[in-house]
Design a protein around this nucleic acid. Structure first.
Lengths: 217, 217
DNA sequence: CCAATACTCAAACGTTCGTTTAAAACGAAC
DNA sequence: GTTCGTTTTAAACGAACGTTTGAGTATTGG
């Protein structure tokens, strides 16, 4: 921990909130804990963010805004490079997985907190968190839905959507508990190695999507 | 809701706790809410379970005990049927996925609560929940680790473990937010249809594992 | 220099939390 | 019918929660 004291209070609060909410979830995190971690008076949190929910939304906005941009940009870039031809399964997968995986924040120390928060958010029980997230995710979701349909035009839609959910789920799980995975695999798997993880996921999921290329059912 | 008033208080508390914790997570659920839902005095919860943590452990034990048995039994059954030959990828996948998917509880009304809890638990931030679960999961995990190694002896271990995590992750995600998935896919995907979901998952993940059969790297 | 604005602070508000207590109600046994 | 262990109850405990307040201290613009 021990953040550098140089950043402004607002950013310190966001950092601390991101950190705590990634570790303890939304309901499990208290504003007092955040304030203390950010070396800020409790009322300061309210001065800048109005309420706990306001803080949470600001935390989400700060991370998921750029993430959404990256998602859409990467997809566009791949589609531009394909010059009208449908994207390969691997490219669509990469566009889905790379931005979250390398959402490393401003430095290596921040990485864990950010990715953990990202994974946590997707499985957060708290209704307000879910609602705050749905809007952000909807646009990216439909973009990828279209990309998959163009890439595998003969695949049944429901089958495609299911597999998208599976990929999101696996990703969220990995991001959610990097420590647990390392522990569970006796250190054989290291979620910090982004490149290898991305390659491994693409390699694993590609065949499952390829099987839909010729159209089933 | 409106549980039948006939069951004993202990069971009513467990049911209510399972329900609430599946919906709101561990920290998000209060004992008062559970007590009210179970039509029981607050102190009764303490009489039977000692503490909130004790209640949570009882909830986990009641569901994950039988689940572990089913996991191991199904694996044994498949291995017995294989008569010494290595299991097919599909069989191992089925042994992993079927028990959680059909953990439907005692009736269709209970199903959602149970599966939701199951998915929630895996991604629960709360440290105590994680700790209480680790013991339960460890035995099943190593059993499947061995099964996969026998099924794909030439596969690199790390690669195998990664893909196990991916499958668990996808499963947990599906179980965690059935409602969200149905909403997100405009109703095209229905997590309640266990058989179809199981078949779809096996079909999707099998090729990814098969690719490891000849050994990579 | 002063007024106005931006920010910080300690203290408190009311609520809800997990937990405990001690007495009442109950059921079976003698 | 009284005794004794089991179960249920209402009431309260202190602590922590999200939130508000009002006075304080910087900082800025005219």
């Amino acid at each position: 921990m021990a953040k550098t004291a140089e950043t402004d209070p607002r950013t310190r609060i966001l950092d601390a909130a991101e950190d705590a909410m990634g570790e303890l979830g939304f309901t499990g995190t208290s504003l007092r804990h955040i304030a203390q971690e950010a070396r800020v008076n409790l009322a300061t949190v309210y001065y800048y963010f109005g309420s706990k929910r306001g803080l949470m939304e600001a935390v989400l906005k700060r991370r998921f805004g750029p993430l959404r941009e990256e998602h859409l940009a990467l997809l566009r870039r791949h589609e531009a490079a394909a010059k009208g031809r449908p994207l390969s399964v691997e490219k669509v997968l990469e566009a889905m997985l790379l931005p979250p995986l390398r959402l490393a924040g401003e430095g290596p120390a921040k990485r864990q907190a950010v990715t953990r928060l990202l994974g946590r958010i997707v499985t957060e029980p708290h209704a307000a968190t879910q609602a705050a997230l749905r809007g952000q995710r909807a646009e990216v979701w439909t973009a990828f839905e279209r990309a998959w349909q163009r890439s595998l035009p003969k695949a049944p839609l429901a089958e495609l959507l299911w597999r998208m959910e599976f990929v999101w789920g696996a990703l969220a799980f990995i991001l959610c508990n990097p420590g647990k995975i390392q522990l569970e695999t006796h250190g054989a798997c290291n979620p910090e190695n982004t490149d290898e993880l991305l390659a491994g996921m693409i390699e694993f999921f590609s065949p499952g999507f390829q099987a839909l290329a010729r159209g089933r059912r």
